[in-house]
Amino acid sequence: MSKIPLIVTTEWLAERLNDPNLRLLDASTFLKHPEKDGYYDVWSGKEAYEKGHIPGAVFADLHKELSDPDSEFAFTLPSRERFIEKISNLGVGEGTRVVVYDQGAIVGAPIIASHWATRLAWQLRYEGFEDVAVLDGGFPKWLDEGRPVTTEPGSYPPGKFTSLRKPELFVTKEDVLRAIDDENVIIIDSLTEEHYNGEVNTYGRLGHIPGSVNVFFGSHSDSETKELYDEEKLRNKFEKVGALDPNKKVITYCGSAIAATWNAFVLNKLGQHNVAVYDGSLTEWAKDPSLPLETT
Score class of each variant (00 low, 15 high):
I258P: 00
G280V: 03
L6F: 07
S155F: 14
F238P: 11
N201A: 00
D181S: 15
N214S: 13
W142T: 02
E127M: 14
I186T: 06
T192Q: 08
T76K: 08
V100N: 04
H208V: 01
H63W: 05
T295M: 10
D19S: 06
A264Q: 11
P292K: 02
W122M: 03
G154K: 06
L135M: 06
T252F: 05
T252I: 05
W116A: 11
L282V: 06
F216G: 02
P292T: 02
T283V: 08
L267N: 06
I87K: 00
K249H: 14
K86Q: 09
V42M: 10
G137W: 02
G137F: 03
I186K: 05
H63A: 06
K226G: 07
K32D: 08
D181T: 11
S44L: 02
R125H: 10
G271E: 00
G154S: 03
A117M: 07
S190W: 01
L66P: 04
A117L: 07
G52Y: 12
I180H: 01
R97D: 09
A264F: 11
S28R: 09
V99A: 00
D279K: 00
K287S: 14
G52W: 11
T96R: 14
K269S: 11
D222K: 03
K46Q: 12
V98W: 03
D19M: 04
G198K: 05
P246V: 01
S281I: 00
E81F: 00
T252P: 04
G108Q: 06
L124G: 12
V241H: 10
L24I: 05
A117Q: 08
I186D: 03
L270Q: 00
L282K: 04
V185T: 15
V134K: 10
P69T: 00
P210W: 02
I4L: 09
Q103R: 15
E294L: 10
G280F: 03
D144P: 07
F73G: 10
K166R: 12
D19N: 10
H220D: 00
D230F: 11
L270D: 00
D144N: 15
N201E: 00
D230H: 14
G104C: 13
S212W: 04
E168Q: 13
